[in-house]
Design a protein around this nucleic acid. Structure first.
Lengths: 175, 175
DNA sequence: TGGTGTGAACTTTTTCACAGCG
DNA sequence: CGCTGTGAAAAAGTTCACACCA
């Protein structure tokens, strides 16, 4: 979130930014910004703020975004396409049949698997990825995929977020 | 999450389920399940567990999923299409030009806006929705949309989730 | 007996408040 | 002087442990 805002700030010509401004942009508390950054080092200048470009570089390094990762996307429906589009991954992609997933994942040295298949297939696909050396999964399917301890997993549940809205809308009206 | 698991349990023929089983399925602590449900009422039977169908009905009621909501999706690229597909919203939809958004939102009494447009357009589209009586937004665009106090908003940041994975992957390898 | 419901203990996260530095 | 960095305080969330009931 911070990184994304820094990009915009740089685009707008800002060279420095205070924790208060960052907090306002990201809709969090200023102390939160300082704590979060402080966890990784001292990036700011007291009495001045943070250097926009320098802080971007620091965050890039922290998130390991400054290195390339081999990502495998399972499911090339609308969601899979949207993901690839969204991430600007359109260059250098290979599209293969799901039957070849296991050998391909090994061959291309896939490090992160993105699952956008229907829920019925999600666990199966995850298992295939796990058989190769993949140990990070980004799961868009509305199913709780079960993975071994060693494998990192992030779930993106769109439905749950929509349900949060209907819940809050209903309660707001009730009050 | 609980609701989704209950659907699967019912499909598999289960009539009752314990907090321990639910917890296992959802990968949380059993006490967590009981606390969460306990916040809304006493749905279980001591010594037995929860009635699968009854608990589904209760959660439906809590989340206000048992009533229809008028949802407006801005952006009909891959992401918008994926969302509609995903939510089984394919019936009864109307597709209109973005220029008609304001009048259409009023006319169709849109209650929840879903934004899947490119980030440049996101704030503008949100503002249009806000001019009608929309006060809940589900935002897929990778921008922090600014909305008035009265408007509920949920952000789905796919990129952030991917960054969490690269961060953790890097750190895991370091250790 | 077995599993819920729940106060109390514990853990984590967030915010405050101010010392300290540029 | 102003804003960062950071302990200390407050709040929120999670887990434990057991009373209680079908």
């Amino acid at each position: 979130m911070y990184y994304r805002q820094l990009e915009l700030l740089e685009f707008d010509g800002y060279r420095m930014v205070s924790s208060e401004k960052m907090a306002w942009l990201c809709q969090v508390n200023p102390a939160q910004v300082r704590k979060d950054l402080g966890y990784f080092g001292e990036f700011g200048i007291r009495g001045v703020g943070y250097d926009v470009r320098d802080l971007q570089a620091q965050i890039k390094k922290i998130l390991a975004v400054n290195r390339d990762w081999n990502v495998g996307v399972a499911g090339m429906g609308n969601l899979g396409s949207a993901f690839i589009e969204h991430q600007n991954l359109e260059s250098g992609i290979t599209i293969q049949d799901i039957g070849e997933l296991e050998s391909t994942a090994d061959e291309l040295d896939i490090e992160i698997a993105v699952i956008t298949t229907p829920p019925q297939a999600a666990q199966h696909v995850a298992d295939l990825f796990l058989k190769s050396q993949v140990n990070a999964i980004l799961n868009f399917s509305p199913t709780r995929i079960r993975v071994p301890e060693c494998c990192l997993i992030e779930h993106i549940y769109c439905t749950v977020r929509l349900d949060i809205l209907t819940y809050q809308l209903r309660n707001e009206m009730g009050s």
